[in-house]
Design a protein around this nucleic acid. Structure first.
Length: 886
RNA sequence: GGGCACGUGGUCUAGUUGGUCAUGACGCUUCCCUUACAAGGAAGAGGCCGACGGUUCGACUCCGUCCGUGCCCA
């Protein structure tokens, strides 16, 4: 039984080890035959190279609330864990850690090194995750680089190819010159740059009809001049209309380009005349395609100037820019140059400015299926609902098909070869998977198209999202019988009961790509929306509500927090905010959790001393035939609590659940009921105490799993922690409480609590100790059945209860109008009622109020009376009773 | 620049379809070592609900503008 102080450092660690060692949270496939009784969670796997941050802690804790609640509520829960280790992030990590470059090794060698480096990080990550005390099934983990996942990723590629949804195309794509790979729209982020705005004069080959022989263009990227292929003017731009149709000569480089009109020119900016280069930005690409312009590639894949740049060949874009500006100045073509702040798009992994390059890449067609994906989003339940708009707007704003090929070594290879002769695509047989074309042979000896016998392997690897978007299929172990039909058949999933997943938890920042890509992939492979619901967690901000960032130095590490506070207290804080809302990290909130743990521990000690020693949980044994009114009242209130909490947990309202439970436990149970119970000696009270206490342990279990587990074992499980079968006896596999149908006079109970509160106030006001004796107390009000409770806890010698009204004189102090009825009925006249009542200009007769020429019915107003007690003793009023103390 | 949110006592927050004394916690003040807990208990002070307009009999709640903050997307 609980004794002394609770020791979280020791006890939390003990339980964490036991839970993992004894597989308390293991998903039981054999038990889980029915998808209705399975609760499956599909967590986005964190990048292992990143260290654990407060976002991981918060996100996983939130999922754990759901997992633990559903496990107790009778569902077979799958709470898996994945490590994302096949992206550019882990590749760069390996390079840094070992001081090597990926290009110096064969793909398989480099992948070996990646896996070796990641292994260490994974072990560290696992350890840190387990310190969070979440109910993850550590038997169900996967790594995105492991062979089974590689196979699923390649299967996904084959399946979409069979469905005709993937294509290879030579087109402008977003390119990172640092990583030397194409990247997709979602891998870009904004960065502020300090640069210059250069006004450059272009000469015309012939003067215009207006007699002009030159014009000025503003640009931040003069190094793109060699790539200039045309100049544009807006059709509504009267000032520059004369330029249209003329030919301009590009300064320094001397090549001639046409001047064309196009309404995509921004009239608000610069001179209204802009150059189009291949390529400076996305608009250049649009123009290039719309006007069928030539391609002039001035920058190569590593960000170095090409021979097109003539004298500047071999320079970096940055150096070329400086030199070209100088030369423009010398040649008299630089009209003006001003410092300029602007936003550019950079690759999120290396923060290098992206370029746009024409290259041959693989794409998944998504632009043609926007409506289906919107519909898929509508079919999911969103917690909170408002987050759906993010998904909606993302899809509506899509401009590129999904580019899935990357020119990297690490990652999962495309299972494709090309005929050396006709470029015909040959895909791997599914039996070959996972395949690596650089090492493996194609499945055919000769090209099915032209009969040629030599093949070129695809060197590219799949985009990391191409794998990360398959986690539901990885968790359910996908291995489809047939490819290309886009439907789920019997046997396609080893664990079909898991799919669709009940919930997809994730941060609101990754709705647009991770969630979206996962919906796309899984929907296309199975014909079903992969998630029933989406649970969005907000960001953990610092104590000043600012985003944590390394540069600001305001990052709080979970390890620091956990070493200082019990994990249960940290979880209590994590339950403080509505899902989806960002919220600040504050020590004081965690301290509040610590206090609650202590309160629960101490209250448990008292319950233990007050109740009989019985190792059977009270919910599983018969109570006394007859319950005392007080005890029945508590249990009836408890029924309401259980119903409310169940409803809150069902819809992820953890903050509401937490606050409701805390208020009832602390105020009603500890402050009111326990104080009364101390003074009683009754079988009924002992049973109610024990049953309420057991219920509290269960209701707190999802939020505070460690302390509740410890208390549960102290009360109801015999033997040492090490000796018991934790998988069978844990509170976390016990049944979630249900209302038991206790029926009590809740009004009388409430009145009785008011009376007690009034007596406390009296004692405080009179500077008496709370356990001071009161000789005689009279109560005017209904407290039937609670008399003993009141006399006991308040130490009242004689209690008299009156049915009748007390000897008091009443005066009408004020009249409260029922505005919700009167407003719609009388409109503006309500103001007249108010001022008349304020002036005392009204009459009450036969229960009706005569005011401002109208007669208001009894239910349209309420009279507030001021009472003066005429008898002896001190009067204390409450909402439903009058108490007189002698 | 566009979109989505959010501004409530010193701090963090609750507030369901508008109904008139705005919730709780932390902190603060006073009192109480009452046989689980003084890291506790009892009582109390503290707010023109971001600003300005509008709709309404009535606005923290609805609408508009502005200011401030955050995220997403250009």
């Amino acid at each position: 039984m609980p004794a002394g102080d609770y020791e979280p450092e020791r006890i939390e660690e003990e339980w964490q080890e036991t839970w993992v060692d004894e597989d308390v949270y293991a998903y039981d496939e054999d038990a889980a035959v029915d998808s209705n009784t399975v609760y499956s969670i599909d967590t986005p796997p964190p990048t292992v190279s990143g260290s654990l941050h407060m976002g991981h802690l918060y996100g996983h804790t939130l999922q754990d609330f759901a997992a633990r609640y559903h496990r107790m509520a009778g569902d077979e829960v799958l709470f898996p864990f994945g490590y994302d280790d096949n992206g550019i992030a882990s590749e760069r990590l390996t390079e840094e850690e070992l001081g090597i470059r990926h290009g110096d090794f064969s793909r398989r060698e480099f992948q070996e090194k990646c896996r070796e480096v990641c292994k260490g990080y994974e072990a560290e990550f696992t350890e840190k995750m387990q310190e969070l005390g979440t109910s993850i099934d550590w038997n169900r983990t996967y790594k995105t680089i492991e062979p089974r996942v590689q196979e699923i990723s390649q299967l996904s590629f084959l399946d979409l190819y069979e469905q005709g949804r993937e294509y290879r195309k030579k087109a402008p794509a977003i390119w990172c010159p640092e990583c030397e790979t194409a990247i997709s729209q979602v891998e870009m982020e904004d960065a502020d740059r300090h640069t210059h705005f250069n006004d450059v004069r272009f000469d015309l080959t012939e003067p215009t009809s207006e007699g002009r022989d030159s014009f000025v263009i503003g640009t931040t990227r003069p190094e793109l001049l060699p790539a200039c292929v045309s100049v544009f003017v807006h059709p509504d731009d009267d000032e520059n209309a004369d330029l249209v149709g003329e030919t301009a000569e590009v300064p320094i480089f001397g090549h001639e380009v046409p001047i064309i009109e196009d309404d995509r020119v921004d009239l608000e900016k610069g001179t209204g005349v802009v150059m189009c280069c291949t390529f400076g930005d996305q608009k250049d690409i649009e123009w290039y395609q719309a006007h069928d312009l030539p391609l002039r590639v001035a920058i190569d894949e590593s960000g170095t100037m090409t021979d097109i740049a003539e004298a500047y060949e071999g320079l970096s874009t940055h150096d070329a820019r400086e030199e070209i500006v100088e030369d423009l100045e010398d040649a008299g073509h630089l009209v003006d140059r001003e410092p300029h702040e602007h936003t550019v798009q950079v690759h999120e992994r290396c923060e290098v400015d992206v370029e746009f390059r024409v290259s041959r890449q693989w794409y998944i067609d998504i632009l043609g299926h926007k409506e289906e994906y919107l519909e898929a989003g509508r079919e999911m339940d969103w917690y909170p609902e408002k987050m759906f708009t993010r998904y909606e707007h993302w899809i509506e704003g899509l401009e590129w098909d999904w580019l899935i090929s990357r020119q990297r070594d690490s990652g999962i290879p495309f299972p494709v070869w090309y005929c050396e002769e006709c470029d015909h695509e040959v895909l791997a047989d599914r039996e070959q998977l996972p395949a690596d074309p650089l090492a493996d042979d194609p499945p055919v000896d000769a090209c099915p198209e032209c009969g040629h016998e030599s093949f070129r392997p695809e060197e590219d690897v799949l985009d990391t999202w191409a794998t990360s978007s398959l986690t539901p299929l990885i968790n359910a172990d996908w291995d489809p019988e047939t490819l290309g039909d886009g439907e789920l058949a019997d046997g396609d999933l080893a664990n079909p009961e898991l799919y669709p997943f009940d919930v997809r938890p994730q941060g609101h920042d990754i709705i647009s790509f991770w969630l979206f890509h996962t919906v796309v992939k899984c929907y296309e492979h199975t014909g079903e929306v992969p998630f029933d619901s989406v649970l969005i967690n907000g960001f953990v901000l610092d104590e000043n509500r600012e985003k944590m960032s390394k540069s600001k130095g305001n990052v709080v590490a979970p390890s620091e927090v956990i070493s200082e506070y019990p994990m249960d207290a940290v979880r209590y804080w994590a339950a403080s905010s509505g899902v989806g809302d960002d919220f600040p990290y504050r020590d004081t909130d965690i301290v509040a959790g610590e206090k609650l743990i202590r309160k629960l521990w101490n209250a448990s000690k008292l319950v233990d001393t007050l109740t009989a020693d019985d190792a059977t949980p009270p919910s599983e044994r018969d109570g006394p035939a007859e319950l005392d009114t007080l005890d029945e009242w508590l249990l009836a209130e408890l029924d309401d609590l259980v119903a409310d909490l169940t409803a809150h947990f069902e819809v992820h309202e953890y903050a509401k659940a937490r606050n409701r439970l805390r208020t009832f436990f602390w105020n009603t149970f500890c402050d009111d009921y326990l104080e009364i119970a101390k003074e009683r000696d009754s079988e009924s009270t002992r049973y109610a105490l024990a049953l309420a206490h057991e219920t509290f342990l269960k209701l707190w279990a999802p939020v505070m799993p460690h302390v509740t587990e410890e208390l549960w074992h102290e009360f109801y499980v015999a033997g040492d922690v090490a000796d018991v079968d934790a998988a069978a006896t844990s509170i976390h596999v016990a049944d979630w409480p249900e209302p038991r149908g206790f029926d009590a006079d809740l009004a009388a109970g409430e009145t009785a609590m008011e009376v007690i509160s009034a007596l406390r106030k009296y004692k405080t006001d009179e500077q008496l100790a709370l356990n001071a004796d009161l000789a005689h107390v009279e109560v005017f009000g209904d407290i039937t059945g609670f008399e003993d409770a009141i006399t006991g806890v308040m130490h009242v010698d004689e209690l008299t209860v009156h049915e009748s009204s007390p000897e008091i004189t009443t005066e009408v102090a004020d009249v409260d109008l029922d505005y919700s009825t009167l407003g719609p009925k009388y409109g503006g006249q309500v103001n007249e009622f108010d001022s008349a009542i304020a002036d005392g200009d009204y009459e009450i007769a036969d229960g009706e109020l005569h005011v401002a020429g109208e007669v208001l019915a009894a239910d349209e107003f309420e009279v507030r009376e001021e009472r003066t007690y005429a008898g002896s003793g001190e009067m204390v009023e409450t909402e439903n009773a009058v108490v007189v103390v002698h």
